[in-house]
Design a protein around this nucleic acid. Structure first.
Lengths: 228, 228
DNA sequence: GCTGCAGTAGTGGTATGTTAGTATTATCAC
DNA sequence: GTGATAATACTAACATACCACTACTGCAGC
């Protein structure tokens, strides 16, 4: 029943957090497959810690709808819920377009430069077809805009809500995404911010976030057992 | 060290949930004061349950920033953070105005009627000066709009983020809020939805949510020890 | 072969014991 | 009296033990 998962234990810090981080990472990257049954006992053996920190980590993950627990029965990695994904997309689009408007006022030259650097790195990854890293840099780009506007908690909310949608995006990574278009849009967003044009920035980021929407149904056909 | 708090244990259901609900309610209603030190041992005596479900409830509350725990030291009810409150207000205003636009399309006659009934109840409470219940009905009003649009999770997000701002609103309840204005705005919002005028609905709800903003600084002066 | 029920293995929920870190307090050297 | 330090009294973190519930398995009766 054992499975290969990423583990890297930092001796400092709480075991509870280690368990939480480990599970979350492996769920989000689909090494722990949606629908997979997972018992506390199994985790005890896998991670070599007692049930207490495991249970506390599971409580957190349950709260984020990444795990579903039935009393006296067991837990499963939550199936991907398309409705959940749709709503998280709505939330993200709504909040991020509002923040990017603020960004036109708030971001200084240095921060804009940082964004441009991120795009350069993204272009590098794209040319090397390193799509995993590219995904991370994409997140980093959006995060930087929000943090720069003092909207760190808002970014946290978006992330928390994105637990289902982001797994879909990981599924899509295999097939080639339209990264060239995405990078062009990143350029466009930064340009709008630089030129302090909130309407344009808003429009660009909405187009951008809508691009990622396609193909959900076909993905569901392809990986039926992962979906609700 | 004991304190009077609301407890009502439902025998069915998990103890963990009972502890969580009890603490959350008492924190949000300020019976457990921001900054107050609270140990697991104290909760054991107060609630007459073991440490395990208490710890698991505290993990959840910590994740929602209602409790702050320092390893090997203890926990406190989190101080009200004005910056947190401001950001939650931004999130709420942004999301709710987007949803209310959808509402103009999505809500049917029956749902609109339900909203009008809620307003009637609110007016009743206002005339009776039952401000506690009025607060709940206010929340119910906004919640109904969002649920009606299939945005239940979005409402959950807003609520989760509102843990600091809502405590400020409770503080304000003592002083008389401008409930008459608020109720007039509720009428306006419903009217805009009924007439399927998204721009108007958007504008009304923004005005509405901005009204609640005032006096924060003076409240902070008045209850210094509750604030960060 | 099918149905019903008793036994049992396995699960998560809860209680309690143990460990390790922190802050305070009492004590001792000066 | 003042400073350093050792004892100790707290805490939360972690480990383990126990309990109640679920679901399956296999046998008995038909």
């Amino acid at each position: 029943m054992s499975i290969q998962i990423d583990i890297s234990r930092d001796k400092r810090g709480l075991i509870r957090d280690f368990v939480y981080e480990t599970l979350k990472k492996n769920i989000m990257e689909l090494r722990l497959e949606p629908g997979r049954f997972i018992s506390e006992k199994e985790l005890v053996e896998m991670l070599q810690v007692s049930r207490t920190p495991i249970r506390e980590a599971l409580v957190k993950l349950t709260q984020e709808e990444l795990i579903e627990t039935t009393p006296q029965k067991g837990s499963i990695i939550s199936l991907i819920d398309l409705q959940h994904a749709e709503e998280s997309r709505f939330v993200r689009k709504t909040l991020e377009s509002a923040v990017v408007r603020e960004a036109c006022e708030l971001l200084d030259k240095e921060q804009v430069l940082h964004l441009q650097n991120l795009i350069s790195l993204q272009e590098l990854c794209e040319s090397e077809q390193n799509y995993g890293r590219l995904f991370e840099l994409d997140e980093e780009f959006h995060k930087s805009i929000m943090i720069g506007c003092g909207r760190g908690r808002t970014w946290g909310l978006i992330q928390q809500m994105a637990t289902h949608d982001n797994r879909i995006r990981i599924l899509r990574l295999a097939s080639d995404s339209d990264w060239k278009i995405i990078l062009a849009q990143h350029h466009g967003i930064v340009r709008a911010i630089k030129e302090k044009d909130p309407d344009q920035a808003d429009k660009m980021i909405r187009d951008h976030l809508e691009l990622l929407l396609i193909e959900k149904e076909s993905l569901k056909q392809k990986h039926t057992k992962f979906f609700k």
